[in-house]
Design a protein around this nucleic acid. Structure first.
Lengths: 329, 329
DNA sequence: CATCGTTGTTCCAACGATGTAAAGACCGAG
DNA sequence: CTCGGTCTTTACATCGTTGGAACAACGATG
């Protein structure tokens, strides 16, 4: 691999002059510039990023800490973050926590100014004390606990309310919710939106219709739905806190020969790509994932330049995509 | 951020002694070792990986070049590669090519010994000339063209043959294939396995039952299925070259009121997590993705130590998971 | 008591890049 | 023909780390 030294020798100038050409410094004699450029071409020089960053005090990387890439929402988001980061000449380092406290702590511990310039976190279990951050950071989703960190996400209360309002507008009166979670801020907000929509329609809030889910995988949705269908008066609609839960719930409904949407309307959250193709296709709250990714990366980019900027709370748009799981074609 | 120098000053020893402690060098006086360890603890020292790697001539990163993270197969695989890489103290840098030649070329160009120690490629469009690699590399899947690079993957012919044999064993006689592709090596092999299974069963090979797909997304499967169902004698089974195509195909079948599996048996390939929850659930060829990820990373790890080792061709196991899309419960 | 091998520590150079300061080239003005 | 100023290039130090050589301390050996 060619270094600046090699190029300099070939062009017959000093190392620094080559560096100046590479970095677009203005005052280089046209003649030298030409010779250097030829030498660069001839050697196929590529800067050693490690060395450059060591000198510059930057790493050129940002961390993206998320539960798991096999969860479609995070996979799609990761793809968008990578694309957005590229525009700022950042490479993205993905760390998986598997939603565990230990995983999140170890991811956080491995972060540091020498490894990444900034970090995007999507935490599920972190405690207040864990947030000893050494690089500019932005949270995706909601603060699980009250910490002064910038955040990007949608208005979860409004989004959930929109979803449940839709179920109400279909004439459903016994609307369940799947995905309650003791420590997840997002879950609390979606539950709040759910309750608000019920109240708005003067429907009673029945705690037994709110089913917790410790993970948000398909299997959890399937299990939760089983318990709902075992009730003596099962619900006629269910609002799931993500699409995977909804897919699992629909699976259980199919196994019990409960018709969706006739007997049971189902709404999900996240709008995974697969949800447009499920049978029936899934009505879902669709956050603008590209906007989230771009907002998060842009915010960090500003913050790296001005580390002491004010906290930001960016709200990105969402929409409700109505599909077959709530409305008969 | 604390450096070795800070720790050394605090412990009252030289920088190198601290370095020795950090790197587990044996001959350090117990007393000094203790003092250094206390100082490490007190300062919260973390090695600057950039500097270390600059000195060691390693970068600590491997590249994973794949089409798109929003494709579940690649997302799942990426998660497993990250986990496997962690065991070798490697971080993974993901590059998305979106399946285009330009995307793959630019990913390849950005790679180099200064950025990554090795690379895992999952190419779709690369030409022979493009393979001017500067770091140890392994291909996932198949060689699109004939290049001398190590490779990890399953036996695609045998896997496809197993899938189609299963359809034959169900008494299906008019078996279609979705996913033919002019330049994709994997597609050619799966087609070969398809033809072998037909031949084995003395079934005729009908070119009109082989539908090409330029991309392997759900929409392509849906479109391909439409063309098959428009035939005057539609197929009674279809082998899709990946699960997304199969999901799309099943979607079209549902829209046309074609019953799966009664009227049409469907088999996919990849065993995405979503395929166990689709309605009906999808019979699929299941490669051992964890084995693929581990084999690829291990191979690279060997190759980094011994760059001139022989080419390797690692075949990982697969199985056929029979679900509702081919067999009535 | 000189010598030796082992153990423990320090000093120096180097990885490849860039910021700084200073030196050299060049120009026109006085 | 010198001076002052602007352009252009260079030597050097530096980022944080580690390999190697040099050196110091030690008990053991003859």
């Amino acid at each position: 691999m060619a270094t600046l030294k090699d190029v300099a020798r070939l062009a017959g100038v000093s190392v620094k002059t080559v560096s100046n050409v590479v970095n677009g410094y203005s005052f280089v004699k046209p003649d030298n510039r030409r010779r250097v450029e030829e030498a660069l071409e001839a050697t196929g020089y590529r800067p050693n990023l490690g060395a450059r960053n060591l000198r510059r005090g930057r790493t050129g990387f940002i961390a993206l800490v998320l539960p798991e890439l096999s969860i479609p929402y995070f996979a799609e988001l990761a793809g968008l973050v990578i694309a957005a980061a590229q525009e700022h000449e950042w490479n993205v380092l993905i760390e998986q926590t598997f939603g565990t406290l230990a995983g999140e702590r170890s991811a956080l511990a491995s972060l540091g100014p020498h490894l990444v310039d900034a970090a995007i976190l999507s935490p599920e279990a972190l405690q207040v004390d864990d947030f000893q951050l050494s690089v500019p950071t932005v949270l995706l989703g909601e603060h699980a606990v009250d910490v002064p960190i910038s955040r990007v996400g949608i208005d979860n209360v409004a989004a959930a309310q929109t979803a449940v309002r839709h179920l109400v507008s279909l004439g459903r009166t016994r609307i369940a919710a799947i995905g309650a979670h003791p420590h997840r801020g997002t879950a609390a907000l979606r539950l709040e939106g759910y309750r608000a929509a019920l109240a708005e329609a003067s429907l009673p809030f029945s705690p037994e219709l709110v089913v917790p889910a410790l993970n948000y995988h398909r299997a959890d949705g399937a299990a939760a739905m089983k318990s709902l269908l075992d009730m003596k008066t099962p619900p006629d609609a269910v609002f799931c806190f993500n699409d995977l839960l909804a897919i699992g719930a629909m699976r259980t409904a199919a196994e019990r020969s409960v018709r969706v949407p006739e007997d049971l309307a189902v709404v999900g959250f996240d709008n995974n790509e697969e949800s447009a193709y499920s049978a029936p296709s899934l009505t879902s709250v669709a956050p603008d994932k590209a906007a989230i990714a771009r907002a998060a990366v842009d915010l960090l980019h500003r913050r790296v330049d001005a580390p002491d900027g004010a906290l930001e709370n960016v709200e990105t748009p969402f929409s409700l995509l109505v599909r077959e799981s709530t409305v008969v074609r």
